[in-house]
């Protein structure tokens, strides 16, 4: 039994396999509409989420399966003090697969170590978010035709941006990759990303606080939101939240085939005016995320 906790739980060939299945789902949705008939997905979201939870639920419904969901974390057993380990053991009795989001870093790993069914990490605090990475990879692949030879700029909250950590890790396995990390000093990329992914794979990278100075170099601009829920101190959040706001003039020097990605939700870090720019791909990411989650559920449930 396999779970997806970290994007590195999937090899490059498994990622290719998932993307191929997702492409086939897009072409032949009817073929997949009953693949998970009789199977149940439990979505355990101990942290607020709209798109990720609905994306998992839509994915399971489109595969003909069922979804078990809890109303919110406040009404859950966790609010009564149940451990993640116990919750995972209990839910394994009801569901065939679990998608978990939890505010604590490492919670999904604890769930996977205790569940008797596959577990998918749908976000563990500010740590990792591998299924968003699946959406990101699929979007880049569909738009660029390859995942090699790209300069990727990550902008905003790189410290707590779990989607950034997972995508940087995933892209560090491809050839000809360069990273540009654009953030305020307080929200720089954590050392575990630099040591585990960048140094090990000899990836060339630049760290800067100035988006404008690097815009012309980028093939992909991955914008992120400064997340209020990651700060213990409201003052720090208010000081840093407007560090980078992408507006049309800032794209003056950008490449014509730049991809602008964002894991969403956005607050104000991308001006609405950018939505009309053909380089803006963040709503396509959402759709690709659903198809990749469908492919992932099929793989983890070992459905042919």
């Amino acid at each position: 039994m396999k779970s997806l906790i970290d994007i590195f739980d999937l090899s490059i060939s498994e990622l290719d396999e998932l993307m191929n299945v997702a492409l086939d789902i897009i072409e032949n949705p009817i073929k997949y509409s009953e693949k998970c008939k009789g199977k149940k997905l439990a979505t355990l979201f101990f942290e607020p989420s709209t798109r990720t939870r609905l994306s998992f639920e839509a994915a399971m419904y489109e595969l003909g399966g069922h979804v078990l969901s809890m109303a919110d974390a406040v009404s859950s057993s966790a609010a009564k003090g149940e451990s993640v380990a116990d919750t995972a053991k209990v839910i394994s009795c009801y569901a065939d697969i679990i998608a978990i989001r939890h505010p604590k870093e490492g919670a999904a790993l604890v769930a996977a170590n205790n569940a008797s069914v596959p577990v998918i990490n749908a976000g563990d605090g500010g740590h990792l978010h591998p299924t968003q990475t699946l959406a990101d990879l699929m979007t880049i692949y569909r738009k660029k035709g390859s995942l090699n030879n790209l300069t990727i700029g990550f902008c905003g909250d790189l410290k707590f941006g779990r989607t950034v950590h997972s995508l940087a890790g995933a892209m560090s396995r491809y050839e000809g990759i360069k990273f540009v990390f654009i953030s305020p000093e307080e929200l720089k990329i954590p050392s575990f990303v630099k040591e585990n992914f960048i140094a090990k794979n000899n990836i060339e990278y630049v760290q800067t606080t100035d988006l404008k100075s690097v815009m012309a170099d980028l093939d992909i601009l991955y914008m992120t939101r400064v997340q209020r829920e990651r700060f213990f101190n409201e003052e720090d959040y208010l000081r840093l939240r407007d560090s980078y706001i992408l507006t049309p003039p800032k794209l003056d020097t950008a490449k014509s085939d730049l991809l602008i990605l964002h894991p969403l939700p956005r607050v104000n870090e991308i001006s609405v005016a950018i939505d009309k720019d053909p380089r803006a791909c963040y709503f396509e990411q959402v759709l690709n995320g659903k198809y990749m989650r469908m492919a992932l559920i099929l793989k983890l449930l070992e459905v042919e």
Partner: peptide, 27 residues
């Protein structure tokens, strides 16, 4: 923010991630 702070009786496990710098990281 780590689950090991709050989870009941969860062992604190650290993994050697860099032998040269003798770096251990929380699992």
């Amino acid at each position: 923010r780590c689950i090991s702070i709050t989870e009941q009786e969860l062992p604190h496990i650290f993994v050697l991630t860099d032998k040269e710098t003798e770096t251990y990281r929380c699992k």
